Simulated scan of single mutants.
Amino acid sequence: MQRITITLEDDLLAALDEFMERSNSRNRSEALREMLRRGLEHSTPDTADCVGIISYTMDLSKRDLSRKVPRSRHDHHDKTIAALSAPLDHDTAVEVAIMKGRTGPIRDYANSLFTERGVRHGHLSLVPVKHELQHHTHAEGHAHQHSHLKVLERFDHDDE
């Protein structure tokens, strides 16, 4: 880790301190690191591996939307890890879809959802991962090899 010095206007420093309190950061450096990670998330290379968490609200009274959105997830079954829908009122649900794959296609899928009429408050969070092949034994006693996702600290921008 390297130490840097920055100069901030008073109002920007106050905003940083507010963020630090809200995010339970222990110090300004930790808060700045989190803000940088979030800010740089949008500039990740389209080919980087990730887990994407897509959240949004959906107006179930909009024609065909409650059929169309689950169908679109099913069309991406190879990328979908899990999906959750929770009713908020008689017409609105909050939904979360967890997907894995390359950042480009996951970002494109999320943006296509967010532009549907009746979908609001969309947010995409990208978690950098890499696939690791591991050879080990589970409870059943025989050794085998399979792939695991390992969460990385940040996206590698060298692959661009």
Score class of each variant (00 low, 15 high):
residue 111 N to I: 05
residue 138 H to Y: 10
residue 119 V to D: 00
residue 112 S to M: 12
residue 139 A to F: 05
residue 142 H to Y: 13
residue 115 T to R: 08
residue 131 H to I: 07
residue 129 V to F: 00
residue 111 N to C: 05
residue 114 F to R: 00
residue 140 E to W: 13
residue 112 S to T: 14
residue 124 L to K: 02
residue 122 G to I: 09
residue 130 K to G: 08
residue 138 H to S: 14
residue 128 P to T: 05
residue 114 F to V: 01
residue 142 H to A: 11
residue 119 V to S: 01
residue 112 S to D: 15
residue 120 R to E: 03
residue 136 H to C: 12
residue 141 G to T: 05
residue 128 P to Q: 09
residue 128 P to C: 05
residue 130 K to Q: 14
residue 132 E to R: 11
residue 137 T to I: 13
residue 132 E to K: 15
residue 113 L to Q: 02
residue 137 T to F: 10
residue 112 S to G: 12
residue 116 E to D: 15
residue 125 S to F: 08
residue 120 R to L: 04
residue 126 L to T: 07
residue 121 H to Y: 07
residue 121 H to K: 09
residue 114 F to M: 02
residue 119 V to H: 01
residue 122 G to L: 09
residue 122 G to A: 10
residue 111 N to F: 08
residue 127 V to S: 01
residue 112 S to Q: 15
residue 125 S to N: 12
residue 142 H to R: 08
residue 128 P to A: 04
residue 136 H to N: 12
residue 121 H to S: 15
residue 113 L to F: 03
residue 120 R to F: 03
residue 134 Q to K: 06
residue 119 V to F: 01
residue 115 T to H: 05
residue 135 H to V: 12
residue 139 A to I: 09
residue 115 T to M: 03
residue 129 V to S: 01
residue 113 L to K: 00
residue 137 T to E: 07
residue 135 H to N: 15
residue 113 L to T: 00
residue 139 A to H: 07
residue 128 P to Y: 07
residue 128 P to S: 06
residue 113 L to W: 01
residue 115 T to I: 04
residue 126 L to N: 07
residue 128 P to E: 09
residue 119 V to A: 01
residue 124 L to E: 02
residue 122 G to R: 03
residue 138 H to K: 10
residue 140 E to L: 10
residue 129 V to G: 01
residue 133 L to S: 10
residue 121 H to C: 10
residue 133 L to D: 08
residue 115 T to A: 07
residue 139 A to E: 14
residue 131 H to G: 05
residue 118 G to I: 04
residue 133 L to N: 08
residue 121 H to P: 05
residue 116 E to H: 15
residue 129 V to M: 02
residue 116 E to Q: 15
residue 140 E to T: 10
residue 121 H to G: 14
residue 134 Q to R: 07
residue 127 V to E: 01
residue 124 L to C: 03
residue 122 G to H: 05
residue 137 T to P: 03
residue 139 A to S: 11
residue 127 V to C: 03
residue 140 E to A: 12
residue 115 T to Y: 02
residue 129 V to D: 00
residue 131 H to Y: 10
residue 139 A to R: 04
residue 135 H to T: 14
